[in-house]
Simulated scan of single mutants.
Amino acid sequence: MHFHLIPRPAEQNPNNGAAVGPQMSEQQFRKWLTTVDVNGDGRISRKELQDALRVLGLRCTRWKSWRAFVHADLNKNKHIEGESEIEELIEYARKRWGILVS
């Protein structure tokens, strides 16, 4: 099952002027993350994340996936795995990708 978000045009957020991307609940974001793992090994590689960000309609996906791994890959094994790393990725998405995870 593939879970794709339909990208919508960026809008201006009246609170801080930053562009706002797709909106989803944390549960939806976690479900989306499970679809990112295309090889089914239970871990998210940088390439898998990069491809998934491209599907969302984000630009500079190589850079964005690299920066996300700098912040979220706590054990530096080049994969996002485990609850603590997923929490870091969710927090990073809230701050940097314009994805509103509520």
Rank of each mutant, 00 (worst) to 15 (best):
S45I: 01
G21T: 05
G57K: 01
T61Q: 05
L58I: 08
T34Q: 11
Q23N: 11
M24F: 06
G17R: 03
P14H: 04
V101A: 07
A19C: 03
H79T: 15
D73K: 02
A52Y: 01
W97K: 01
Y92E: 02
A68I: 03
T61H: 04
E88W: 04
Q28D: 15
N75L: 05
F69K: 00
I86H: 04
K78Y: 09
H4N: 12
H2L: 12
H2N: 13
E83Q: 05
L58S: 00
S25V: 07
I80L: 12
G42S: 01
S25K: 03
E26I: 13
I86K: 11
Y92W: 15
K95V: 12
H71R: 08
A18F: 11
V36Q: 00
R43G: 00
N13I: 11
W63E: 14
D37N: 12
R62C: 10
S45C: 08
P7D: 12
N16A: 09
Y92K: 03
Q12M: 11
G82L: 06
S45A: 04
E26Q: 05
Q28Y: 03
E83M: 05
R59T: 13
N13C: 15
I90C: 08
S65M: 01
L53G: 00
R43V: 10
P14T: 10
G98E: 06
R46E: 15
Q28M: 05
A72C: 14
L56P: 00
E85M: 09
R59C: 05
L5P: 02
F69G: 02
S25H: 08
E88R: 14
K76N: 11
V70H: 10
W32Y: 06
E26L: 09
K31F: 15
K64M: 10
L53V: 06
G17V: 11
D41V: 04
G40M: 02
T61I: 09
E81T: 07
R43H: 08
N16M: 02
G98S: 09
V36D: 00
N75S: 06
H71F: 15
I90K: 07
L58E: 04
F3V: 12
E87N: 13
E91D: 09
K31I: 09
A18C: 12
D41Q: 00
S65Q: 03
P9F: 09
G40F: 02
W66V: 10
G17W: 02
A93Y: 00
A68G: 13
V20S: 14
N16H: 11
I90A: 07
G21C: 03
L5F: 15
Q28L: 13
Q27D: 14
N77P: 11
